[in-house]
Design a protein around this nucleic acid. Sequence first.
DNA 1: CGACATGTTGAACCTCATCAACCGACGTGG
DNA 2: CCACGTCGGTTGATGAGGTTCAACATGTCG
Lengths: 221, 221
Amino acid sequence: MDDTQVRKLAQIAHRKKIPAGQTIISDEEPVDFFANVISGAVKLTKTLPDGRQQIVGLLFAPDFLGRAYSKNNPYTAEAATEVEICTFPNAAFERLVGEYPGLQQRLFQHTLDELDAARDWMLLLGRKTAQEKVASFLYMLARRSLQTACGHRAERESAAFELPLTRSDMADYLGLTIETVSRQLTRLKTRNVIRLSSNRLIMVPDMSRLVQAAGQDDNRH
Amino acid sequence: MDDTQVRKLAQIAHRKKIPAGQTIISDEEPVDFFANVISGAVKLTKTLPDGRQQIVGLLFAPDFLGRAYSKNNPYTAEAATEVEICTFPNAAFERLVGEYPGLQQRLFQHTLDELDAARDWMLLLGRKTAQEKVASFLYMLARRSLQTACGHRAERESAAFELPLTRSDMADYLGLTIETVSRQLTRLKTRNVIRLSSNRLIMVPDMSRLVQAAGQDDNRH
DNA sequence: CGACATGTTGAACCTCATCAACCGACGTGG
DNA sequence: CCACGTCGGTTGATGAGGTTCAACATGTCG
């Protein structure tokens, strides 16, 4: 995106702060806006008639929220932490997309990335053990914290970050119960794979051990 | 797509028949073509280092295969049944997409549908019981068979179709073992939700009972 | 016919869910 | 100020659902 595009976007944008726990988009009502996550974490959830819930996507800092070419999206978006978003009226945004084809391509690319992430998660949900699920989740967050923060240092062996989710949300993301999540965390702690300074602060002394606990290749170079 | 587009596509296309079980795209080698499924079923799989496998997508008749804007895709595509596909050299296809922006939009729309399907499946993998998983899979196939075949009749209460997957593939799709799949099928049979004429032929006398066994809303229109 | 792949069924085991008690932090109202 | 309820989290005991291992059935192909 070049400068003029960014400026045009900023003109029609509307910044907003949303407290943790608040619903941003419901699967029952149509969506008339498009948004960009500025800070915080947004969870996309699906719920079965009897109340069982699954988080099907987690949105962070530069991610898009909302749905192109369709008013009603099939899931609920909720603020997992306090969230700042930048909203655009749908009509104005679509007009802008029409003017700058590069923007559509970026949107497309982003959707493809989301699809990849969803399919990675399907492998986790269908085939990994509780221990591997929790470790994989932590590994994802650790990688995020490393790439967004100081990317230069050769110290990619360790990481420290804050959990953006409660135990209950983690359970809904991993297809587990809160009790199992809690137990697996203490198990990773006693195995010295992680350290917990507070309930929400995670320290990973050795990334390779975490990768191993996650039961996956470290194939993202 | 209008006629000229279709004709141009046909010019650069190359039809191909692929026997069941053969790998079409490997996650280890780059992909230099784009394809369209004509008949049969293609499964997209992901595998853990120790061999555990998960099917992350199933492609049927008019679906696309291959990856826009990226040479290396992160999963393997394999023919689940005998498959007929129509391939296009990547370069030629991308040129065509550049000429007809409507095509890109259709591709985008299709990717969004795939994303929705993947997230539906995440709910299934993370939160449904074995019984519900098998029933949901059968329900998906039953809907497919109804909408592609005679759509008019008011007889949408029953359906009959052929399973495109082996028990082993069903297990990999549902995050179960073949034994559990087999047991749940016989259980659905004894509950009179389905009838099995052969191993592969399923008859659903009453769709609403299947929906109920799948534990989900029948909220699609 | 035997070898092999696909599918079913049974028995034992184990992981994870369920139910329950408990802890600390926090906010509120008497 | 402290009792009280609530919320997020941990830990323990128990049991069910699904995996694992094994045997067997069926169909197909050389």
